[in-house]
């Protein structure tokens, strides 16, 4: 009995060790986003609160938490408050299977990739229900757009992951990273799967409803889309879920295609040739930076262009590349593992 209780406590401590740094990195990510976009707009970005504006994100959190949560009249109260939680819980739960280093993972389950797909596909319920429960036209329009977009890009994303699975021969994320071991950067899956790698990351941007695929929010047409009626802490939960998902997509792109915690240099190079969690964080940071770079560079896609890109361009390419990956594996054109 005591052993059971200790196991539960120990797991809770491990969960906190993932969730707390995640929440803090979301805050830092928001600060970094505002800084980067500021520089790209030839502005300063936040620079008043704390050194270099570092405390701006925390000040915003406090502001959001002490604001009143306004409930629209004749909205569905139960679903209105359930929706932000339905968005946040899968975004946090998905982190359970992300491996940070060899053996450094909360749950090393066999069907890890499948679990990730399941969790990321659940996040859309938060957005749809928020749009419907708000009893507002703008929110409903945003929810509709988001549902169609997420379903379309999930297919392309799933097919891209199938290519990785074909090469690695496993659904376990640690095994996928181990399959990319070898002579550094050249043995990563991003080279044999280059088109699919690009498609995966773009689909990830579309899945998280980020610019240039942010028609679900579309400030210029539908005000703020699904969260137009949300204020205070309820809005903060949506915000947290969106940024946690962005960081998750960055980590997954690193794990699936860029060798996870493996070093880009050959093992004979001594210290920088050794793998470790710091490499994963560097790679994830580069991908997370791409999100911000996209947002400051590209104008928003039109709705029909998003649909065309997903269904007529990405899905055919990924289907062809599943066959290519099968050939690569069958004829032994790629080396898998060290």
């Amino acid at each position: 009995m005591a052993a059971d209780i200790w196991l539960v406590l120990w797991t809770l401590i491990k969960i906190l060790c993932i969730v707390l740094p995640l929440v803090i990195s979301v805050a830092m990510y928001v600060w970094w986003e505002r800084k980067v976009i500021g520089w790209m707009h030839a502005r300063m970005g936040p620079n008043k609160v704390g050194p270099a504006g570092l405390l701006q994100a925390f000040a915003d959190v406090v502001k959001l938490l002490i604001k009143e949560v306004i409930v629209p009249t004749s909205s569905n109260k139960f679903l209105f408050f359930l929706a932000p939680l339905l968005g946040l819980v899968p975004a946090l739960a998905a982190w359970a299977v992300v491996p940070f280093d060899q053996g450094l993972v909360l749950a090393n389950i066999n069907a890890g990739v499948l679990y990730l797909l399941a969790m990321t596909s659940l996040g859309v319920y938060g957005i749809i229900l928020a749009g419907w429960a708000s009893n507002s036209r703008y929110a409903l329009l945003g929810a509709m757009r988001s549902a169609a977009q997420v379903i379309s890009y999930e297919l392309a994303m799933g097919m891209a992951i199938v290519c990785v699975l074909v090469l690695a021969g496993s659904l376990n994320l640690t095994a996928i990273v181990d399959a990319q071991k070898g002579a550094g950067i050249l043995d990563w899956f991003m080279w044999p799967l280059l088109p699919v790698f690009v498609i995966y990351f773009i689909s990830g941007v579309a899945e998280t409803n980020r610019a240039p695929f942010d028609v679900a929010e579309g400030e210029s047409e539908i005000v703020a889309g699904f969260h137009v009626e949300y204020s205070g802490s309820a809005f903060a939960l949506f915000f947290l879920a969106e940024y946690a998902n962005m960081i998750l997509v960055s980590f997954l792109a690193s794990v699936l295609f860029c060798g996870g915690w493996l070093s880009p240099f050959p093992a004979s190079w001594g210290f920088i040739g050794a793998g470790g969690w710091w490499w994963l964080f560097v790679k994830a940071f580069l991908f997370a930076f791409l999100f911000l770079w996209f947002r400051a560079s590209f104008p928003r896609y039109r709705y029909d262009q998003i649909m065309r890109l997903g269904w007529k361009v990405f899905i055919p390419i990924t289907i062809v590349w599943v066959l290519v990956a099968g050939c690569l594996k069958y004829f032994g054109w790629v080396t898998v593992g060290a």
Binding site: L117, S121, L122, A147, E154
Partner: peptide, 19 residues
């Protein structure tokens, strides 16, 4: 797979229509 296919895709489309 049940969660991915039915909860993640089919029921979202259902909700889409019902809304």
């Amino acid at each position: 797979a049940l969660v991915v296919v039915y909860v993640g895709a089919v029921m979202v489309l259902f909700l889409f229509v019902v809304m």
